[in-house]
């Protein structure tokens, strides 16, 4: 059972335990909890306004001293401006106003009101709209982090002891030359994100930027390398100007054990032939070399399974970027590689 998120209940606990002496301190406590602070309507700061019986009962409940952690012994340098709990008189305590209206600033700051989402800002005369509006992300926002983190992991043999393999070896009286451990998924080996910059991916440039940000958020800068390519990364890849791109093997190869995520349309949006189109065989060769280097490839494509080139659908680990995609889909796509007998 997980504990609920920080809520006004936590403010109530904090107010009882800390017994703040003024509204400024109460507001500071609320801010630490991520809650806003508003004066109750019709009441002045620090004053006692009319309240109903229920409110008074709640107040007296709030003011009851609660057992708290032991206080450290007082020293010569202690902050003596605040008297210890047992020296604060009852009268002073009961004079303290208790807030009757709490406002969550977190939710306010993160979620604009509905009317604002639907409102279209008026264009100022002469204004030129330089950037297109942000499109909704391909993956469902609530699932995105989970899907991408599952997709980006690789397995490392650093888990619990693999008892089945140990028992099998012991039963055959074979010496254990290495400790067999279960595979655990991790991002520790890093991620290489390959972004397809071909013309067919132009409609998805905003999605590429969004994916880049999303992956960076949970992988971290140190463990993430982002490269661009056209058609197939096996040709050339790199960052910055296309003139500085270099052959993927060996110049851009990812460190052993890291995950390679390629965001591409697999040539679906391009003519079947041409310099900007990679034949399925080219992708398969690229995937084979990555597997040999123990840097497993997972292709993320904005097109549904029905449109994937049949030769690739059967042989590559592919995940569709759509609202219907789940973390389970990502896990299965990543596992497909294992089921085909690759390392």
């Amino acid at each position: 059972m997980t504990r609920p998120a920080v809520s006004p209940a936590d403010l109530a606990r904090a107010l009882v335990a800390l017994r703040p002496g003024d509204d400024r301190t109460r507001a500071a406590v609320a801010r630490v909890l991520g809650l806003g602070w508003a004066e109750p309507e019709g009441e002045e700061s620090g004053g006692r306004g009319p309240r109903g019986g229920a409110g008074q009962a709640a107040d007296s409940e709030l003011r009851r001293p609660a057992p708290g952690p032991p206080r450290p012994p007082s020293g010569s340098e202690r902050d003596d401006e605040v008297p210890p709990a047992d020296e604060i008189g009852d009268e002073k305590a009961t004079d303290e106003p208790i807030p009757t209206r709490l406002v969550r600033t977190r939710s306010i700051s993160r979620r604009p009101p509905e009317w604002l989402e639907q409102a279209e800002p008026l264009a100022r005369p002469g204004d030129v709209v330089a950037t297109p509006p942000e499109l909704p992300p391909l993956l469902r926002p609530g699932r995105e982090r989970g899907i991408l983190s599952v997709a980006a992991r690789t397995g490392v043999s650093e888990g619990d002891l693999d008892l089945e393999r140990v028992i099998a070896a012991v039963a055959r009286a074979e010496p254990l030359r290495a400790v067999p451990r279960r595979s655990v998924p991790t991002l520790a080996r890093g991620v290489q994100l390959l972004l397809d910059r071909s013309d067919a991916m132009l409609p998805f440039q905003g999605d590429l930027r969004h994916l880049e940000r999303a992956v960076r958020n949970f992988v971290g800068d140190d463990a993430l390398e982002i490269l661009s390519f056209v058609a197939c990364p096996g040709r050339r890849a790199g960052s910055g100007s296309i003139r500085r791109w270099r052959p993927y093997f060996p110049d851009c190869a990812a460190p052993r054990g890291s995950r390679v995520l390629a965001v591409t349309d697999l040539g679906i949006g391009m003519p079947a032939t041409g310099p900007s189109t990679a034949a399925p065989g080219e992708w398969l060769e690229f995937a084979r070399r990555l597997e040999a280097a123990e840097t497993p490839l997972l292709v993320l494509t904005p097109y549904p399974r029905e449109r994937w080139p049949p030769a690739l659908a059967l042989s590559l680990s592919i995940l569709s970027l759509s609202r219907a995609t789940s973390a389970g889909n990502a896990a299965r796509a990543a596992r497909d590689r294992v089921s085909r007998g690759t390392p």
């Binding site: 800390l18 400024r24 605040v82």
Partner: peptide, 19 residues
């Protein structure tokens, strides 16, 4: 100023300013 004034509450954790 009022903003610089110390906050007033019962501190179960009440260290010296300089420990």
């Amino acid at each position: 100023t009022p903003d610089d004034a110390p906050l007033v509450y019962v501190k179960s954790f009440n260290p010296s300013r300089v420990e």
